[in-house]
Design a binder for these strands. Sequence first.
RNA 1: GCGGGCGUAGCCAAGCGGUUAAGGCAGAGGAUUGUGGAUCCUCCAUUCGUGGGUUCGAGUCCCAUCGUCCGCCCCA
Length: 427
Amino acid sequence: MEIIQAVRGTRDILPQEVRLWQQVEASAREILGRANYQEIRTPILELTELFARSIGSATDVVGKEMYSFSTRGEQEVSLRPENTAGVVRAYIQHGLQMAGDVQRLWYCGPMFRYERPQAGRQRQFHQLGVELLGSRDPRADAEVIALAWDLLQAVGAENLSLRLNSLGDPQDRRAYRQALVDYLTPLREKLDPDSQERLTRNPLRILDSKDPRTREIAEGAPKLPDYLSPESRAFFEQVQDHLQRLDIPYQLDPYLVRGLDYYTHTAFEIVSPDLGSQSTVCGGGRYDGLVEELGGPSTPAVGWAIGMERLVLLLQKKQGEIPPALVEVYVISRGAKAEAQSLRIAQALRQAGFCTELDLSGSAFGKQFKRASRSGATWAVTLGDAEAVAGEVQLKHLPTGQQQTLLQADLVKYLASHSRQGYGVPR
RNA sequence: GCGGGCGUAGCCAAGCGGUUAAGGCAGAGGAUUGUGGAUCCUCCAUUCGUGGGUUCGAGUCCCAUCGUCCGCCCCA
């Protein structure tokens, strides 16, 4: 019989790894919660047009990486390749701009892009992101960046650097794009094939090329910062001032161009040299035009997304595995009557807040004790025929080997007063 | 989408054309049929991702396919 395996580019996150994910999610909840960001959950499925209009139909993400299909009602839908579009759609649809001038939102969930899988790049991957809607204050940019930075520090990611750039407003960008095309067109033949292709599709990307000859040409190209309007430049400087006041180190990178069409002004990435070719852990920026573009009121906004798989990869490299939660009580039973009582006892312990494992094997006491030891439990509760008849249990403190007989009715109370963990605190 | 590396048990692996596929970890059973992490013994791949081909003979060579990894593209 042929084994069915997970779809290419998707993978299972097994319990051991899930613990790391939960740790990251818990930190995010805490750090973002303290800044009064509210979690939002939007559908994984959206109308294809939403992404075409927001991300840009000329981008690779929309052009060739989307999981798109028609539903029976003949709607064209896609699995979301990122979540800013969905959050903005929800913002507009529910009139969240009415609920306060600023909305601070965060999310975490699966995204889908049909790409060639690689380490740190799956077809189904997960992003944790924030969106701050309704402010054009440069403190908003800095706040959002600071939160990403704090979160990454809090979970223990190391060796990160923040790269920062400004794309200016749409006019600035258009002017720069033209200047760049004017500069590059005569040199077209000297560019690598990919970059020649990009010259018409996405010229700004050429600056980021890894081809050495193209890089050399890019060196002499007009620089984007020179094309920023005085207002754009002043705004960017304020963002930087705030980052400096927060002691967040950054490097200006005039070649940093975010791929999605909606970005304006601030663009940033947090990268790690430990991730190989997929080095971006977090990417984001300002997108002042997007809400309006999607039919909402003109609303400035900033946000970012962290690639969960990449972050987890980084943390795994550094700290290895997280030990599982410890079993506190291990319930051993043998014989029909004892086995019949064992589950009730285990449930009572659980209801009292003890992490309790019930041995289901029915094998010899010796074997069950062996498993009890291996489970890391502090206590073994043993129930054989004799105890079952008498309404008792043997309670053994595994670290010391001391054992005593207790009435079943007294077990929970006894453990509650002799165990440091968890009485009356259901977990 | 393009170029390249790799696929032997749940995990880490040896094997590099010649009868029976090392070893370790994990797991199961026993020594110990009511008491534990130590020790000892036994078991645990009719088969080397899958399908073809070459050969007297293939885990070993070739082709295809699937998966994975690295680079490009793109991006978190």
